Computed example of a mutant assay.
Amino acid sequence: MFEIQPMNAELFRKQTRRSTVIIALIFLALAMVLSTAAVALFGEPGGDNLRFNVGGVFVAVLLMVALMRGMFWSQAWMAPAVYGWQLKRSLMSITNVMHQVTAAVETGDPTAMKLLRFYHLGLSQMHELDGNSSDHGQLSREVEQHKARMEALGLDTEQTQLNPAWLEAVKQTPK
């Protein structure tokens, strides 16, 4: 279950830039070392060694995937980037069924209303973290209308957790 956490946008951007630079530098070093090693071991002096260079880069990509999943993902310096990825992934899971969510909200389905509220809160945070204020302004009217409708029905508007059961329930609603 994903939960929206309060974050300082400036600090978030600074930390994600730093982790991106670290990952890029590690990848470049691996790609260079592995390509050079492949050419030295299997290449021909003065010959066409493109396939060995490409092979070294490909192995570096595979190694980076393994490092990301196995080592880096749980490191403290990656936490903001991981959080951002999880937030965007959660929002995308709702976007994929948005037509069903909006249809269920129109019928007054409380589960769909909670799901849409989480989506609004998550999208607002994503825009803030990404420094994208133009998209946020366009959404505010819809967000406020939905919040007022939830309050009128006595539903909690602080939907900071995405319950996967909500998604499943909305997916089961007729299209």
Results as ranks from 00 to 15, higher is better:
P80L: 11
V143M: 13
S74D: 13
G55D: 11
Q138S: 15
W73E: 12
A29Q: 10
S124W: 01
T111P: 06
L41T: 12
L153Q: 15
Q100N: 08
Q75Y: 10
S124V: 00
K14N: 14
E144A: 13
G47M: 07
Y119K: 07
S124G: 08
G122R: 02
G84D: 08
A103V: 04
M64F: 02
P174K: 00
L87Q: 05
A66H: 08
L167R: 07
N53W: 12
N132E: 12
M64K: 03
M78S: 05
L167G: 06
L28D: 13
G43N: 01
N8V: 14
L87V: 09
Q138M: 14
D135E: 14
G43V: 00
A38C: 13
K175T: 11
A9D: 12
S133Y: 10
P45L: 07
N132F: 09
Q86A: 11
L30Y: 12
V101I: 01
T173K: 14
T16F: 02
L167E: 07
N53E: 11
V54Y: 08
W73P: 05
Q145E: 14
V82D: 09
G84L: 02
L116Y: 02
M126W: 14
L34C: 07
L162H: 08
V65F: 03
G84E: 06
L91F: 09
P45K: 11
F52G: 05
V54H: 03
S133G: 08
